[in-house]
Amino acid sequence: MQDHSAFFDHIGYKKHVDKKSRVTLDLPVKSEVVNEDGTLSPGLFSTMLDIVIGSTVNEEFKSPASTINLNTTYFDLSNKGPYRAYASITHQAEKVITGEGIVEDCFGEMAAKGIGTFKLLSESKQ
């Protein structure tokens, strides 16, 4: 499986997988991803959660996966980067996996929380 995508690089995310296959995702906030008023686009956090939950699914089930649904709640969109996100698996029903993730700001406060549903893909469908 490819490690990360072109969009991942375009925004500047950094992914780390430890020896126990736990995924963390960092966002060092670059000037081009900040809004005119100094806030951050909610899409940055949704993207972060999509990646970190999806990557956790990939690591846990050793399979590529496609997002079916992502529900994100945002708590603070003022720029308190860098940010870190991590995720866990909540439920599995055959090929449908549900996971949840958290984005924390540089003070360790929760900036966003999301729950995502993913479908495991067979390698031939990639």
Binding site: H4, S5, G43, T47, D50, T72
Partner: peptide
């Protein structure tokens, strides 16, 4: 553009979310 692609070579889900929010 390709810079918006995920590892499957399609539009990244984060872009959908960003566009909808916008």
């Amino acid at each position: 553009h390709e810079k918006l692609h995920n590892v499957n070579g399609t539009l990244h889900g984060g872009v959908h979310a960003t566009m909808l929010d916008l």
